[in-house]
Design a protein around this nucleic acid. Structure first.
Length: 449
RNA sequence: UCCGCAGUAGCUCAGCUGGUUAGAGCAUCUGACUGUUAAUCAGAGGGUCCGGGGUUCAAGUCCCUGCUGCGGAGCCA
């Protein structure tokens, strides 16, 4: 028995059939039928129906049941009974009711609402069954990630959130004043620091929030999201891809084991998740381009006069969402696309010795239209090659001195990747929009609540 | 930043070619009911038609403009 407060939760009610318990929670819904009142109570762990029968409890307790409104806080004492008709298999025959607070005019009714309205009430929306289920899956995903790395010889090495410069040089970052040192930026990736950490501890991962100031208005983007980034000394691209597959398989299978009830509440097609077993698909960028051309998937290209034309997909162009979606229609499992053209990828990625026009990069795309969940690469470990790439991208050499140092003092082949937590949870839960899978989403036009 | 869509009751929406006092379902409140699961039945209350300007005898409806939100592109996890 723990020293801190503990009481019976709805989640565990099947262990208490026949016993009298007190449940502490909130009224999810109530309906009355003459001398009968049905109170659906939620307590954060689940929902159970309490049955109040006037002749059994007397007028006073029944009057309290009648007084209850949606989301009123209440403690209910009663006997747990197995009940076939109940969704969770049990019901509570109520003997006593203690009202803590009566809620008035709760805005979210058990009816349809638009997304805009629900987002305005995100602080309350989290109480609804669907959001509750998503948040529990999210918690599992995060725990699975940490268990996976902690159990495989990795050490957690947090990266700073304030950074002096853009990590990849290209993205738009959030800017802030930093005392007398000028501007600081909110990190878009902990990777460069993870590389330094990997040279110190071998296998590391960073796990934290990440910020992008791009004005992305899609259901795949947030301005603030969580990313886990493993970085491994002495790993090449193939090792990197093997690790990424193992991680994703572990996450999905752990959710299947842990959150069956939640996935059912979300009406997720579990058979699709059961298929997420190694090996995943792997194709090179060049093979993917060949496939696009063979299947006549065109690229919309804007011309100087503003009109759009459709052209055959040119080798060297980066894939957009339409191309990625088309490629994934052939697969039921995630697919890794590797060896992209160097021009479309970040400066720190290592050139493919077998084809210097490409880099040893890889992206993992999830099926069912979920899109990119992982981006990674083998890193450039040669000092001069990295310096040349820095200069080519016009990045400030001074700011990257410490990063270049890693190639001067015991440089080794190393690799890593970043996995987007929200993208992964969106895929696993089948959520329509990424804003549903983080408790308080930050998007370009929303910072409240 | 670009392209498209939307804003009418607490919520989700309808409102045709501009024409009487702006409608429905749900929610709320009152009453009935011992098995409800989005209960049902009877009744009641509830409106700055996003803001501003214009056209017209007449504007929720047409025009201009602003605001807010949504989706997509680009960028990426």
């Amino acid at each position: 028995m723990s020293r801190y407060k503990s009481f019976v939760t709805i989640e565990k009610l099947t262990d208490h059939i026949g016993e009298t318990v007190t449940l502490n929670g909130w009224v999810y819904d109530k309906t009355e039928k003459g001398k009968l009142a049905f109170i659906k109570l939620r307590d954060g762990s689940g929902i159970v129906q309490g049955v109040v029968f006037r002749p059994n409890v007397g007028d006073e307790v029944f009057g309290r049941a009648q007084e209850l409104t949606q989301e009123s806080s209440v403690s209910i004492t009663g006997t747990v009974r197995a009940e076939q008709r109940a969704p969770g298999g049990v019901e509570v025959d109520v003997a006593d009711i203690v009202i803590h607070q009566i809620s008035r005019d709760y805005p979210i009714t058990p009816k349809e609402h638009g997304v805009e309205f629900l987002m305005e009430h995100r602080h309350l929306w989290l109480r609804s069954t669907r959001q509750h289920a998503i948040m529990r899956v999210r918690a599992t995903v995060i725990k699975a990630i940490r268990d996976f790395f902690d159990g495989n010889g990795f050490r957690l090495m947090d990266s700073p959130i304030f950074t002096p410069n853009a990590c990849e040089g290209t993205s738009t970052l959030f800017e802030t004043d930093y005392f007398d040192l000028g501007k600081a930026y909110l990190t878009q990736s902990g990777q460069l620091y993870a590389e330094a950490s990997a040279m110190a501890l071998g296998r590391v991962y960073t796990f934290g929030p990440t910020f992008r100031a791009e004005k992305s208005k899609t259901r795949r983007h947030l301005t603030e999201f969580w990313m886990v980034e493993p970085e491994m000394a002495y790993f090449d691209l193939n090792d990197d891809m093997d690790l990424a597959e193992d991680l994703v398989e572990y996450i999905v299978q752990t959710v299947l084991e842990t959150n069956e009830r939640e996935l059912r509440a979300l009406e997720r097609d579990i058979t699709k998740l059961e298929k997420v077993r190694r090996p995943f698909h792997r194709i090179s960028y060049t093979e993917a381009v060949d496939w696009l051309r063979a299947n006549n998937i065109k690229l919309n290209r804007k011309q100087a006069d503003g009109t759009e034309i459709q052209i055959d997909f040119p080798w060297g162009e980066d894939f957009g969402a339409p191309q990625e979606e088309a490629i994934m229609t052939q697969f039921e499992k995630p697919c890794i696309i590797h060896r992209y053209p160097s021009e479309v990828k970040a400066f720190y990625m290592k050139r493919d010795p077998e084809n210097p026009k490409t880099v040893l990069a890889m992206d993992m795309l999830a099926p069912e239209g979920a899109g990119e969940i992982i981006g990674g690469s083998q890193r450039e470990d040669n000092h001069d090659a990295l310096l040349e790439r820095l200069r080519h991208e016009n990045l400030p050499e001074d700011a990257f001195q410490w990063y270049l140092d890693l190639r001067k003092f015991g440089s080794v082949p190393h690799s890593g990747f970043g996995l987007g937590v929200e993208r992964t949870v969106k895929w696993i839960t089948g959520a329509e929009h990424i804003r549903e899978v983080i408790p308080f989403p930050r998007m370009i036009y929303r910072i409240v609540p």
